[in-house]
């Protein structure tokens, strides 16, 4: 679905440029995009590599494990359908923790494991279970303590205060999480 979207973007863009007599810009854009994306890639790659390495250290040293154990106690009331000490809570916790540190790409493997272990508990394998819906809502509103990639990017642009927005991000994500958990409770009763 996401892949199709890129095609639509290009088709709509080209058609609109032709209609509005702006077609010269398309040529320029296409040629410039290749260098643009290579630039983004070169800037981004070392940052990703560094943080994935740190993440691996956190996993191997058992830090992530410890944090997950603490968090899974807090999370249990949100997932009444999951039996106590079920492994899915551990994966969910790891996923949330990776998200808290802004490591989206590190969160994904844990998220996929969480989904497959929630699927084991699911009665109707074609339909999303209540726990899954709570999990994806919690995941996408993602409480963020340290938006790592963002801070790295702001540092790269030589910001005088790269962490200036961190507090606001934290509050907004907490508010978003609270609201979507409330909505989740309401929807799960109705449907």
């Amino acid at each position: 679905m996401v892949n199709k979207l890129w095609t639509y973007f290009i088709i709509i863009g080209i058609l609109f440029a032709l209609i509005s007599g702006n077609s010269l810009s398309i040529n320029e854009t296409i040629l410039k995009s290749a260098t643009d994306s290579l630039e983004v890639f070169i800037q981004l790659f070392p940052v990703i590599a560094l943080w994935l390495g740190i993440m691996n250290i956190a996993t191997d040293s058992g830090l992530l494990d410890k944090l997950s154990k603490i968090l899974s106690k807090v999370l249990h009331p949100l997932f009444p359908d999951i039996p106590k000490n079920h492994k899915s809570l551990g994966y969910i916790s790891s996923n949330i923790i990776a998200n808290m540190f802004g490591l989206g790409s590190a969160a994904t493997p844990f998220g996929l494991k969480a989904m497959s272990s929630l699927q084991e508990l699911n009665e109707d394998k074609k339909k999303a279970s209540k726990s899954m819906l709570t999990f994806t809502a919690l995941n996408t509103s993602a409480i963020t303590i340290i938006p790592t990639t963002l801070i790295a990017l702001r540092m790269m642009y030589k910001s005088v205060d790269p962490t200036k927005t961190v507090f606001i991000t934290l509050i907004s994500t907490v508010v978003a999480t609270i609201f979507s958990m409330i909505l989740d409770r309401i929807l799960s009763r109705r449907f």
């Binding site: 890129w6 410039k32 290749a34 983004v40």
Partner: peptide, 19 residues
């Protein structure tokens, strides 16, 4: 990289076309 290129290209085309 190929994903990045496709995304940057298509998003740039959409934005620069004025749509």
């Amino acid at each position: 990289f190929p994903n990045l290129l496709a995304m940057v290209l298509s998003v740039n085309v959409l934005i620069n076309s004025g749509f």
